[in-house]
Design a protein around this nucleic acid. Structure first.
Length: 348
DNA sequence: CGGAGGTA
DNA sequence: TACCTCCGG
């Protein structure tokens, strides 16, 4: 079900690295992807997210602040990319997600009534990102000196564009979608702790790098064929894929026919979807993006008063802890600029 | 998720 | 140093 299945197929070209591999690199992070992760994960065992004294959720701010600080300390430069308006044909997927979220909300309530202790596993799928959270995340990023870009459409597409244009080195996301948008390098699992819960059990996880050219070489496909492969198993724009066809079968089909028309005839695309496959293919090959100049992206312009205002004054974060992190962040920026200066003299 | 503080 | 558990807001 969906593009996540592709992992099985491309396992041999997934490179596990440690965080230091990314030192000095620029990572374009899918902001919604990250914020949802924080909302899902930063919860108490009973499922409650972190909240300030007014009852407003703060998990996403905590996650952003401490993870950014750490990644920056590791010499990684971050650009966050926020989703813009989703294409009309994403509606189905969005409705599906909302439906699943509501279903999990019910399950959560039922488990709560039944007196179950570990409610986190239900609660994490009830996360909802609202406009206020998005605005405050942007504000915090700005205050931290972490640049962000507002994409006109899909964030994954914009992030892929940044990597294609050599403004960033990697797309940072848990999803594989940016490969379809032509993102040349993707990093998944970009975290500090190296631990994540998978189906309830905690396992060690390190960042993994996927290069688009390795994927295409290994599968012996071109970009168009990769997109077609994705359309057969299901993307955000046709979430169900084609009934009865998984990634293995899809790969066989895509390899067997040279002519895309034949593939889509064979799988009876028109029987399942109103939208033409050509329109979706075009969206992946040439998505709406906003043009960015490398010089316009500034790293490390920190506003520590603003950070304190957002986290301590507005949201009751611990003054001591925030101040400590601000000092560490400033130190990282200073070291970073010294490094840059040094390499400037060495290279210049 | 990541930090802090504890234990072996 | 590795690992565990609880807390943060």
């Amino acid at each position: 079900m969906g593009l996540a299945e592709i992992r099985e197929l491309i396992k041999p070209v997934i490179k596990e690295v440690d965080l230091s591999y990314l030192s000095g690199k620029i990572v374009a992070l899918d902001a919604f992807n990250a914020l949802y992760q924080f909302l899902a994960a930063i919860r108490q065992p009973d499922g409650t997210p972190l909240k300030d004294s007014k009852g407003r959720i703060t998990s996403h701010l905590s996650g952003l602040f401490y993870r950014n600080k750490n990644l920056i300390e590791n010499g990684i430069k971050l650009i966050y990319v926020f989703d813009g308006r989703h294409p009309e044909f994403k509606k189905k997927e969005q409705e599906l997600r909302e439906e699943q979220r509501k279903k999990m909300e019910e399950k959560y309530e039922i488990a709560k009534e039944a007196g179950e202790k570990n409610l986190k596993k239900y609660a994490e799928f009830t996360s909802k990102l609202d406009y206020n959270m998005i605005d405050e995340a942007k504000e915090l990023l700005k205050a931290m000196g972490v640049p962000y870009i507002q994409a006109p459409s899909e964030g994954e597409a914009e992030a892929a564009y940044l990597v294609k244009k050599n403004i960033a080195d990697f797309v940072g996301s848990q999803d594989y979608d940016s490969l379809l948008f032509g993102g040349t390098r993707v990093v998944r699992n970009i975290t500090i702790s190296g631990k994540r819960k998978i189906r309830g059990v905690e396992v060690n996880i390190s960042p993994e790098i996927i290069e688009l050219k390795d994927v295409l070489n290994y599968l012996n496909l071109n970009q168009e064929k990769l997109i077609i492969l994705a359309l057969v198993v299901g993307t955000d724009y046709n979430p169900d894929g084609i009934k009865g066809i998984g990634i293995k079968k899809a790969y066989e089909i895509v390899k067997k026919y040279d002519d895309p028309e034949k593939i889509f005839n064979y799988i009876n695309w028109d029987k399942y979807y109103d939208i033409s496959w050509k329109e979706l293919e075009k969206f992946f090959l040439d998505p709406p993006v906003v043009d960015i100049n490398k010089e316009d992206i500034k790293f490390g312009e920190i506003d520590e008063e603003k950070i304190r205002k957002i986290l301590i004054d507005n949201h009751d974060f611990s003054e001591e802890r925030v101040n400590k992190s601000i000092e560490e962040l400033k130190k990282s920026y200073k070291q970073g600029s010294q490094k840059n200066l040094l390499s400037f003299f060495q290279n210049g």
